[in-house]
Design a protein around this nucleic acid. Structure first.
Lengths: 205, 205, 205, 205
DNA sequence: AATGAATGAGCGTTCATTCAT
DNA sequence: TATGAATGAACGCTCATTCAT
């Protein structure tokens, strides 16, 4: 169901045990994304992973632990996707260019590419405070760096509250899960429009 | 738990039956907001409403029906609050002033004032397609009107895609439920910052 | 739903209270017949009787008591119908003629005419041993008398075990509730066939 | 509670799972027979089967499904018992002898031997039209064959309506559940008396 | 490494019954 | 005389979890 994830693939030999574990997580991610955590049963996950419900407990201690891990992977995947994309830009790319790339990658990963990423966004409320905070910290760190860079280079105005800007932009991005329809345009086009808004606003210029 | 709601209060005599019904809805709204629909049990709702679980069924046919009504009220309350606030402005208020007022009221209603409003935002995925669509149509209609007005008066640039603008702004607003902390500033201040972003963007001017 | 029951009607003034009581019993009889005792709720009975569920308890102590009374009336109605029909025969009517009349009346009452009568047969298992025994005693007394008469007059053979004969005939009669279809012939024709069997058997003569 | 059922027993190894499933059905059959379907709870069935209520759902999808299977077995058991008994007769046995054997076996199976058989008779009204019709068709087919044979050999009179005869006899047989008391004589004696009635009638000869 | 079988707690819901008005 | 409101016990059923094999 997911495109193969180079990002998480480990090199060399993979033990069967690891493969099954992965299969379970994939199944859970897909179902958590589609139905939410509470509405997904262990039996559904097992069935999707082509094993029996009891077997899950050989790999995970509880359904909660599966959720934790799915969400953890979700945030990491978004993070690494975005980082990879930004790092692939030429060293002299502008701050705005970097942010544009980050936005495009974020949207693409969350909306099209990855169950973990969207499961993360849809179910973040069901995990413990700590997991949620860890999640948030990771997100914050990365975007803040991007924003500060752009501010230093003058591409973001000196008066701008970066914290609010970040929350504003990320809110808009994450909320797309609620309305985005692939039929109405690629995520890249959407990303471009969002960036224009973000930098230039809607007002008359 | 909720501030009294002038919007829904009926004048004069209130039958006991109506009061209990209201109490159940209030309890459900609070719990749906805090825990989500699936995680909330009828016994929790009953306990919060200080009645017994079986009594709920004297007023509602099912848990689903309670959700429907809570969400319906949620959207209505946001809608009416915003409309009331905007209509209270002087007739010659600018388009931007109107949007600022709408944003401030939306944030205040969702974040501080009303369980129904936030329950609506958090649980919209659990209802039927029709209810969701009705919900969306109402929201869209109102904000679109505001935006078009501002575009006509030139306060929003002619090049702006209002549909995307609306989704962008509302996404950012609704996502605040995930991070807003009352200790860090009033919703009015937040609204002002959001509007500045929305109209002027983050870029250097 | 029932034809008016001269049999149970009391003469002169009827108090409203009595009328309501009767309405409840009628409703219960109809529903017990159609759905059985367990499947019928007090609210259904109330609704059918055009009152509210709580009001039933002004007239009856419990659902069980309603059943008792419905069944009690059921047996009495069959009994009285049959007795009336038989007594209406000329004094010199033969034993067989009397039994034929009883059978026809029994079938008609149970199958076409009366909810109490059929409710009795369908739900007899749900009442207390005592009520069941009372029921049975009444039935036995009457039919036994008819049979003995026919035996004395030689219309039933001397060798016949009247007890078994009665159970045999009544079993066949009561079981008709399981298969009788009004479209396939009147109860009178059915009664005639049954009597022929009963007296003459199926064997070659 | 039931005598061992050669009819359904499978030879050799029996898996534990099959044994539990069987135990549940046995428990349900017994309780359905004694109390009826509606009055029997899943917890009663579980308790009788010495398992916990939840476990039932490892084997059956619903209470209804249990009923279906119990009734299905009931009709099959009666059918097969009767068929076996009749087939065991000498090839040249008379039509009457065959019917006598069928009646005796039917009564014995329903009254003494088997909860499934009696549960079937007592609860047939609670299943779907289709199941009921299937049931009836099976019953009809078998008895009709027996009767036609006897008619052809002249043991049943040419004038006899076989359909009515069958309903008459089976009604009487099934109704025995309501009054048969083992203390008052064996089912075989009862069967003999019933057959005498059926063939010779009660009238003087 | 995986499963079949079972469990127990709890779910949404039903319903006969009560009782103040 | 009748009811609106409420209850409590029980119902059929679900599901995360356990554990011997």
């Amino acid at each position: 169901m997911n495109a193969p994830m180079d990002i998480t693939a480990s090199p060399g030999q993979v033990r069967k045990s690891d493969r099954t574990r992965q299969t379970i997580l994939d199944a859970a991610a897909k179902l958590f994304r589609e139905q939410g955590y509470k509405a997904t049963t262990q039996r559904q996950i097992a069935s999707q992973a082509k094993i029996k419900a009891g077997s899950i407990y050989y790999y995970f201690e509880s359904k909660d632990q599966i959720l934790d891990e799915v969400l953890e992977r979700g945030i990491r995947i978004v993070h690494e996707s975005v980082e990879t994309a930004v790092n692939a830009l030429p060293a002299n790319a502008s701050g705005r260019r970097r942010i544009e790339s980050a936005v495009a990658t974020h949207l693409h990963t969350v909306l099209r590419y990855n169950d973990y990423a969207s499961a993360n966004i849809q179910n973040i409320r069901h995990v413990s405070r700590e997991a949620r905070d860890r999640n948030r910290a990771l997100r914050r760190a990365y975007w803040t760096a991007l924003f500060e860079q752009a501010k230093q280079s003058g591409e973001i105005g000196q008066h701008v509250d970066l914290s609010i800007a970040r929350l504003f932009l990320l809110g808009a991005l994450n909320w797309t899960l609620d309305w985005y329809d692939p039929k109405q345009g690629s995520t890249d086009i959407l990303a471009e429009k969002f960036c224009t808004f973000f930098f230039e606003g809607s007002g008359r210029r």
